[in-house]
Write a protein that binds this DNA or RNA. Structure first.
Length: 260
DNA sequence: ATGGTCGATCGTCGA
Protein backbone atom coordinates (compact mmCIF):
# COMPACT_ATOMS: atom_id res chain seq x y z
CA UNK A 1 0.00 0.00 0.00
CA UNK A 2 1.12 3.52 -0.75
CA UNK A 3 0.81 6.07 2.07
CA UNK A 4 1.41 9.71 1.19
CA UNK A 5 1.66 12.85 3.31
CA UNK A 6 1.21 16.37 1.97
CA UNK A 7 0.96 19.78 3.61
CA UNK A 8 -1.39 21.37 1.09
CA UNK A 9 -1.43 24.85 2.66
CA UNK A 10 -5.16 25.40 2.37
CA UNK A 11 -7.63 22.88 0.95
CA UNK A 12 -9.70 25.57 -0.74
CA UNK A 13 -6.70 27.05 -2.55
CA UNK A 14 -5.32 23.60 -3.41
CA UNK A 15 -8.46 21.65 -4.25
CA UNK A 16 -7.84 21.39 -7.98
CA UNK A 17 -4.20 20.42 -7.49
CA UNK A 18 -4.96 17.91 -4.77
CA UNK A 19 -7.61 16.20 -6.89
CA UNK A 20 -5.28 16.11 -9.90
CA UNK A 21 -2.54 14.59 -7.74
CA UNK A 22 -4.82 11.87 -6.37
CA UNK A 23 -6.13 10.99 -9.84
CA UNK A 24 -2.56 10.64 -11.14
CA UNK A 25 -0.83 8.95 -8.22
CA UNK A 26 -3.65 6.95 -6.62
CA UNK A 27 -2.18 6.60 -3.11
CA UNK A 28 -4.13 4.22 -0.90
CA UNK A 29 -3.93 6.71 1.95
CA UNK A 30 -3.06 10.41 1.99
CA UNK A 31 -2.44 12.42 5.13
CA UNK A 32 -3.09 16.13 4.65
CA UNK A 33 -1.93 19.04 6.80
CA UNK A 34 -2.82 22.73 6.93
CA UNK A 35 -6.25 22.17 5.47
CA UNK A 36 -7.15 25.57 7.04
CA UNK A 37 -10.80 24.57 7.03
CA UNK A 38 -13.56 23.76 9.44
CA UNK A 39 -14.73 20.15 9.17
CA UNK A 40 -18.10 21.27 7.78
CA UNK A 41 -16.39 23.42 5.13
CA UNK A 42 -14.02 20.68 3.93
CA UNK A 43 -14.81 19.69 0.31
CA UNK A 44 -15.45 16.10 1.34
CA UNK A 45 -17.63 15.18 -1.64
CA UNK A 46 -14.94 16.02 -4.20
CA UNK A 47 -12.58 13.50 -2.56
CA UNK A 48 -15.32 10.91 -2.03
CA UNK A 49 -16.06 11.13 -5.75
CA UNK A 50 -12.47 9.90 -6.32
CA UNK A 51 -13.15 6.91 -4.08
CA UNK A 52 -11.69 8.16 -0.81
CA UNK A 53 -13.09 7.91 2.68
CA UNK A 54 -12.49 11.18 4.53
CA UNK A 55 -11.73 11.96 8.18
CA UNK A 56 -10.90 15.54 9.09
CA UNK A 57 -9.86 17.43 12.19
CA UNK A 58 -10.10 21.05 11.20
CA UNK A 59 -10.34 24.53 12.65
CA UNK A 60 -11.02 27.97 11.28
CA UNK A 61 -8.29 29.86 9.48
CA UNK A 62 -5.20 27.77 10.16
CA UNK A 63 -3.84 24.30 11.06
CA UNK A 64 -6.16 21.34 10.39
CA UNK A 65 -5.30 17.75 9.42
CA UNK A 66 -7.05 14.96 7.54
CA UNK A 67 -6.70 11.33 6.54
CA UNK A 68 -8.14 10.13 3.23
CA UNK A 69 -8.21 6.42 2.46
CA UNK A 70 -9.58 4.18 -0.24
CA UNK A 71 -10.29 1.55 2.43
CA UNK A 72 -12.71 2.47 5.22
CA UNK A 73 -11.22 4.33 8.19
CA UNK A 74 -11.82 2.89 11.64
CA UNK A 75 -11.24 4.07 15.22
CA UNK A 76 -10.67 7.70 14.21
CA UNK A 77 -9.11 9.79 17.03
CA UNK A 78 -8.88 13.55 16.81
CA UNK A 79 -6.38 15.66 18.75
CA UNK A 80 -3.10 14.86 20.50
CA UNK A 81 -3.51 13.58 24.05
CA UNK A 82 -1.88 15.24 27.03
CA UNK A 83 -3.19 18.82 27.21
CA UNK A 84 -6.91 19.61 27.37
CA UNK A 85 -6.18 23.32 26.97
CA UNK A 86 -4.52 22.85 23.55
CA UNK A 87 -7.17 23.57 20.92
CA UNK A 88 -4.90 23.44 17.84
CA UNK A 89 -6.02 20.86 15.25
CA UNK A 90 -2.70 19.13 14.53
CA UNK A 91 -3.24 15.38 15.02
CA UNK A 92 -5.62 12.74 13.68
CA UNK A 93 -5.32 8.94 13.91
CA UNK A 94 -7.12 6.10 12.19
CA UNK A 95 -6.87 2.38 11.58
CA UNK A 96 -6.71 1.38 7.92
CA UNK A 97 -7.28 -2.19 6.75
CA UNK A 98 -4.54 -3.36 4.40
CA UNK A 99 -4.78 -6.81 2.88
CA UNK A 100 -5.36 -9.24 5.74
CA UNK A 101 -3.91 -6.88 8.34
CA UNK A 102 -4.38 -3.35 9.64
CA UNK A 103 -2.11 -0.28 9.82
CA UNK A 104 -2.47 2.67 12.17
CA UNK A 105 -1.93 5.96 10.36
CA UNK A 106 -1.47 9.37 11.99
CA UNK A 107 -1.55 12.70 10.14
CA UNK A 108 0.56 15.24 12.03
CA UNK A 109 1.12 18.98 11.76
CA UNK A 110 3.82 19.69 14.31
CA UNK A 111 4.03 23.30 15.54
CA UNK A 112 6.43 25.53 13.59
CA UNK A 113 7.77 27.14 16.76
CA UNK A 114 9.09 30.40 15.33
CA UNK A 115 10.35 32.72 16.55
CA UNK A 116 12.68 30.99 19.00
CA UNK A 117 12.79 32.39 22.52
CA UNK A 118 9.01 32.85 22.59
CA UNK A 119 6.02 30.93 23.87
CA UNK A 120 5.63 29.49 20.36
CA UNK A 121 8.94 27.66 20.64
CA UNK A 122 8.13 26.45 24.16
CA UNK A 123 4.81 25.15 22.82
CA UNK A 124 6.62 23.27 20.07
CA UNK A 125 8.87 21.50 22.57
CA UNK A 126 5.98 20.69 24.93
CA UNK A 127 4.01 19.38 21.96
CA UNK A 128 6.91 17.13 20.96
CA UNK A 129 6.96 15.67 24.48
CA UNK A 130 3.26 14.82 24.11
CA UNK A 131 4.02 13.38 20.64
CA UNK A 132 6.66 11.11 22.16
CA UNK A 133 4.34 9.94 24.92
CA UNK A 134 1.51 9.19 22.49
CA UNK A 135 3.90 7.40 20.09
CA UNK A 136 5.22 5.26 22.93
CA UNK A 137 1.64 4.34 23.86
CA UNK A 138 0.72 3.43 20.28
CA UNK A 139 3.93 1.45 19.76
CA UNK A 140 2.92 -0.83 22.62
CA UNK A 141 -0.02 -2.06 20.50
CA UNK A 142 2.43 -3.64 18.06
CA UNK A 143 0.10 -2.68 15.22
CA UNK A 144 2.17 -1.33 12.30
CA UNK A 145 2.32 2.43 12.97
CA UNK A 146 2.85 5.15 10.36
CA UNK A 147 3.42 8.68 11.73
CA UNK A 148 3.26 10.99 8.73
CA UNK A 149 3.21 14.71 8.37
CA UNK A 150 4.77 18.13 8.40
CA UNK A 151 7.03 17.61 11.41
CA UNK A 152 8.65 21.03 11.02
CA UNK A 153 12.08 19.61 11.88
CA UNK A 154 15.25 19.68 9.77
CA UNK A 155 16.85 16.55 11.25
CA UNK A 156 20.40 16.98 9.94
CA UNK A 157 22.51 19.57 8.07
CA UNK A 158 22.23 17.51 4.88
CA UNK A 159 18.45 18.05 5.04
CA UNK A 160 18.90 21.70 4.05
CA UNK A 161 20.52 23.31 1.00
CA UNK A 162 21.89 26.09 3.24
CA UNK A 163 21.90 24.77 6.83
CA UNK A 164 23.55 27.92 8.16
CA UNK A 165 20.53 29.95 7.01
CA UNK A 166 18.39 27.99 9.49
CA UNK A 167 20.72 28.32 12.49
CA UNK A 168 18.32 30.64 14.32
CA UNK A 169 15.15 28.95 13.13
CA UNK A 170 12.93 26.77 15.31
CA UNK A 171 13.06 24.01 12.67
CA UNK A 172 16.81 23.51 13.16
CA UNK A 173 17.36 24.24 16.85
CA UNK A 174 19.38 21.69 18.84
CA UNK A 175 16.36 21.17 21.14
CA UNK A 176 14.06 20.50 18.16
CA UNK A 177 16.50 18.08 16.59
CA UNK A 178 17.10 16.32 19.92
CA UNK A 179 13.35 15.86 20.36
CA UNK A 180 13.19 14.34 16.87
CA UNK A 181 16.05 11.98 17.69
CA UNK A 182 14.23 11.02 20.89
CA UNK A 183 11.29 9.94 18.72
CA UNK A 184 13.58 7.80 16.57
CA UNK A 185 15.06 6.35 19.77
CA UNK A 186 11.63 4.89 20.59
CA UNK A 187 12.32 2.52 17.71
CA UNK A 188 10.91 4.56 14.84
CA UNK A 189 12.47 4.60 11.38
CA UNK A 190 12.68 7.67 9.13
CA UNK A 191 11.11 5.94 6.11
CA UNK A 192 12.45 8.26 3.43
CA UNK A 193 15.97 8.47 4.85
CA UNK A 194 16.09 4.69 5.26
CA UNK A 195 15.56 4.23 1.52
CA UNK A 196 17.27 7.45 0.32
CA UNK A 197 20.62 7.95 2.06
CA UNK A 198 21.69 10.64 -0.38
CA UNK A 199 21.82 14.29 0.77
CA UNK A 200 19.96 17.07 -0.99
CA UNK A 201 16.41 15.71 -0.95
CA UNK A 202 13.89 18.32 0.14
CA UNK A 203 10.15 18.57 0.75
CA UNK A 204 9.65 22.34 1.23
CA UNK A 205 10.76 25.42 -0.65
CA UNK A 206 9.73 28.89 0.53
CA UNK A 207 7.52 30.91 -1.77
CA UNK A 208 9.93 33.83 -1.41
CA UNK A 209 13.12 34.71 -3.24
CA UNK A 210 12.79 32.03 -5.93
CA UNK A 211 13.72 29.30 -3.46
CA UNK A 212 12.42 26.47 -5.63
CA UNK A 213 14.23 27.70 -8.75
CA UNK A 214 17.46 27.66 -6.71
CA UNK A 215 16.53 24.32 -5.08
CA UNK A 216 16.97 26.16 -1.79
CA UNK A 217 14.91 23.61 0.12
CA UNK A 218 14.62 21.74 3.40
CA UNK A 219 13.40 18.26 4.34
CA UNK A 220 10.76 18.72 7.04
CA UNK A 221 7.92 16.39 5.98
CA UNK A 222 8.60 12.92 7.34
CA UNK A 223 7.11 9.44 7.63
CA UNK A 224 8.16 7.62 10.78
CA UNK A 225 7.59 3.87 10.92
CA UNK A 226 7.34 1.47 13.84
CA UNK A 227 9.47 -1.66 13.51
CA UNK A 228 6.38 -3.58 12.35
CA UNK A 229 5.80 -0.98 9.62
CA UNK A 230 9.49 -0.65 8.77
CA UNK A 231 9.56 -4.40 8.12
CA UNK A 232 6.96 -3.72 5.40
CA UNK A 233 8.89 -0.83 3.79
CA UNK A 234 9.53 -1.35 0.07
CA UNK A 235 10.36 2.13 -1.22
CA UNK A 236 9.72 5.82 -0.71
CA UNK A 237 9.68 9.00 -2.71
CA UNK A 238 9.21 12.74 -2.84
CA UNK A 239 6.93 14.09 -5.57
CA UNK A 240 8.86 17.30 -6.22
CA UNK A 241 7.04 17.85 -9.52
CA UNK A 242 3.98 19.32 -7.79
CA UNK A 243 6.08 22.30 -6.65
CA UNK A 244 6.30 23.36 -10.30
CA UNK A 245 2.53 23.34 -10.79
CA UNK A 246 0.35 26.44 -11.02
CA UNK A 247 -0.58 27.68 -7.53
CA UNK A 248 1.60 25.12 -5.74
CA UNK A 249 1.74 24.35 -2.07
CA UNK A 250 5.13 25.26 -0.61
CA UNK A 251 5.38 21.57 0.47
CA UNK A 252 5.36 18.53 -1.83
CA UNK A 253 3.95 15.03 -1.28
CA UNK A 254 6.14 12.43 0.43
CA UNK A 255 5.27 8.73 0.32
CA UNK A 256 6.18 5.22 1.37
CA UNK A 257 5.21 1.96 -0.28
CA UNK A 258 4.53 -0.81 2.24
CA UNK A 259 4.26 -4.48 1.37
CA UNK A 260 0.92 -5.75 2.67
C1' DA B 1 19.01 46.14 6.19
C1' DT B 2 14.88 45.48 4.09
C1' DG B 3 11.55 43.08 1.76
C1' DG B 4 10.79 39.42 -0.50
C1' DT B 5 5.40 35.29 -1.07
C1' DC B 6 1.38 32.98 0.04
C1' DG B 7 -3.49 31.69 2.46
C1' DA B 8 -7.35 32.95 5.04
C1' DT B 9 -9.68 36.84 5.41
C1' DC B 10 -10.46 41.74 4.75
C1' DG B 11 -5.97 44.31 8.81
C1' DT B 12 -3.25 41.04 10.22
C1' DC B 13 -1.44 36.71 11.68
C1' DG B 14 0.85 32.42 10.61
C1' DA B 15 4.22 30.34 7.92
Amino acid sequence: MKITTWNINGVKARLEGALAYLKEQQPDVICLQEIKSLDEAFPRQAFEDLGYNVATHGQKGFNGVAILSKAPLEDVERGLHGDDTDDHARWIEALVPAGNRVVRVVSIYLPNGNPIGTEKFAYKLRWMERFKRRARHLLADEIPLVLAGDLNIIPEPEDAKRPQAWANDALFQPESRAAFRALLALGLTDGVRATHPEPGIYTFWDYQAGAFQKNDGIRIDHILLSCEAADMLVSSGIDTFTRGWEKPSDHVPVWVELET
